[in-house]
């Protein structure tokens, strides 16, 4: 028996299109990415370790990871509410609101970055509420709360950038849900609260986690919307992608590559987690 790598088909063009796809993929994506790993391998292990565990670098990991986690969590909570409202309820202007959810995808990150900075700077529309004489800030000591140029500002930017992921992964999952199971739960005596917690939430949990992970992964690598609002102080408000740029500007290519490899590994781990989630939810569904 012959081992078949491809099923027979009457349609033409498989060889040509597949060949072109593989060639373009290799030239544009695979070879350049491989170059990154090779570059990081041009320094020996102890140099690699030193480059990726320098206190300034570790501080940037903690900040990037922590702010991304908080941003993704805020999005998971509010994204769940927004998706629920958009799928289940009707109100005037709903289609417009639904379309607006994609704004962070469509808006260039540099534009989001300067806009958010303008809003959350101490004299900005929202920033002034939190300044020392603002109606919220006055309760928090002589300096109030600074948002722009602090880790809080980074969280704001990462929340903005991750917002569509949770909503857009939850919406189809909620639309696909059969109202019969809710009716069954209700007719068996469950309260609405119980139905939500024990029937609805478990059904949409894989989608919620996937959206959370996507928002988190995006936040880990985000650069444009963060650099304006972050203040970029080493050890305090310097995110890892910015540190890579800094190393590059100092012509420390190998160090930049080493930090990039660590970042990429973290992103790939999240990607793997998402794939496992999807495999799990598909198995669960069938």
């Amino acid at each position: 028996m012959q081992l078949t790598l491809k099923e027979r088909s009457v349609l033409p063009g498989f060889g040509l299109t597949m060949g072109f796809t593989l060639l373009y993929l290799s030239l544009l994506v695979m070879i350049p990415l491989a170059g990154l790993f090779l570059k990081s391998a041009t320094i020996n292990w102890s140099q690699f370790w030193a480059a990726t565990t320098d206190p300034r670098v570790v501080a940037s990991y903690k900040l990037t990871f922590g702010a991304s986690l908080i941003g993704a969590t805020i999005n998971a909570v509010f994204g769940l509410i927004v998706a629920w409202v958009l799928v289940r309820y009707s109100f005037p202007g709903k289609n417009l609101v639904d379309a607006m959810v994609d704004l962070p995808f469509a808006m260039p990150t540099a534009v989001s970055g300067i806009a958010l900075t303008a809003i959350y700077a101490p004299n900005g529309w929202i920033g002034q509420w939190f300044a020392h004489d603002g109606w919220i800030g006055q309760w928090f000591g002589p300096n109030g709360i600074k948002i722009a140029y602090t880790p809080l500002g980074i969280i704001v930017a990462l929340t903005f950038i991750g917002l569509p992921f949770v909503v857009r992964t939850l919406q189809p999952a909620m639309e696909d849900m059969d109202s019969e199971i809710e009716e069954a739960a209700a007719s068996l005596g469950a309260t609405r609260r119980q139905t939500f917690l024990k029937v609805i939430l478990p059904t949409i949990l894989p989608a919620l986690l996937t959206g959370f992970a996507l928002a988190f992964a995006r936040a880990l690598g985000e650069y444009g919307s963060v650099v304006f609002i972050a203040g970029n102080m080493p050890m305090k408000t310097e995110i890892t992608p910015l540190l890579i740029v800094t190393k590059l500007e100092q012509y420390s290519y190998a160090e930049a590559a080493a930090i990039a490899v660590v970042t990429l590994m973290a992103s790939f781990a999240v990607l793997l987690f998402i794939n496992l989630l999807q495999w799990w939810s598909r198995r669960y569904a069938s």
Binding site: L33, G35, T109, I244, A260
Partner: peptide, 15 residues
């Protein structure tokens, strides 16, 4: 999608 934009630039600088 999962590569930071900064790294996307970096790989071409390295090449």
């Amino acid at each position: 999608y999962s590569v930071s934009p900064v790294i996307a630039g970096l790989i071409f600088v390295l090449l």
